[in-house]
């Protein structure tokens, strides 16, 4: 594992702890998009089905289990939060899920001549998870643009997700150059996903880093 991948993973891990801290210590899920969190849970469950058939490393196994468990817990907390109507969580997620699923059925890494149908279904779900992750932040971005009272911790959560994506891009450049590692589906979707965060970082810069004490 190279340093870029590791920093990316640690930033991703930090994003979970930031969000959990916000939910637990403020006892409020205001500003957190349930739709984005439900999409992330879907992403992790679909992508990490290979927990059952492929062992890469204990690092990978534990991170995958944590990502699924933590996102499931976050979805549970936000969904059952009574103090938050989340009326601004209005993104139409079917416009994300259905195109991602259709695209995954046509653009994937299946090899029907090799492995059985179950392995190929896993390939389709892997591609679906990649496409869905690329756009899963959009409901959260929409909420951030609509809410005035977005807490800093939610913004830091988003920033750590953006850093995670940026370092994965560096990781892929490194791996392509030194290892010949190349998953075009993940790389193209990863570039799209990182570009979506560019919009967020402008907001972050304006609302958090430039915020003056009143």
């Amino acid at each position: 594992m190279n340093i870029f991948r590791f920093v990316g993973d640690m930033s991703h891990l930090a994003s979970f702890f930031l969000l959990l801290a916000k939910l637990i210590y403020t006892k409020s899920s205001t500003g957190v998009s349930l739709k984005t969190q439900a999409l992330y849970l879907t992403v992790f469950v679909c992508r990490y089905l290979d927990l059952l058939v492929a062992f890469v490393s204990w690092y990978n196994e534990l991170m995958k289990i944590f990502f699924i468990a933590a996102s499931a817990y976050i979805v549970y907390v936000v969904a059952t939060s009574t103090r938050n109507s989340n009326a601004s969580d209005t993104y139409r997620v079917e416009f994300l899920v259905i195109p991602a699923l259709v695209l995954a059925c046509f653009v994937n890494e299946t090899h029907w001549s090799k492995g059985g149908w179950s392995l190929n279904v896993m390939e389709i779900l892997w591609a679906f998870s990649i496409y869905l992750e690329a756009v899963a932040v959009l409901p959260q971005l929409k909420m951030l643009h609509q809410l005035e009272d977005t807490t800093n911790i939610t913004m830091h959560y988003m920033a750590s997700l953006g850093i995670y994506r940026a370092f994965y891009l560096l990781n892929w450049v490194y791996r392509l150059y030194y290892e010949g590692y190349w998953h075009p589906i993940a790389v193209v979707a990863g570039i799209v996903q990182t570009l979506l965060y560019a919009d967020f970082f402008i907001l972050y810069y304006q609302s958090v880093l430039l915020r003056l004490p009143s």
Partner: peptide, 10 residues
């Protein structure tokens, strides 16, 4: 060279 690599990322 580009190789078909296993999926070892998160």
């Amino acid at each position: 060279h580009r190789v078909k690599a296993p999926k070892d990322e998160l």
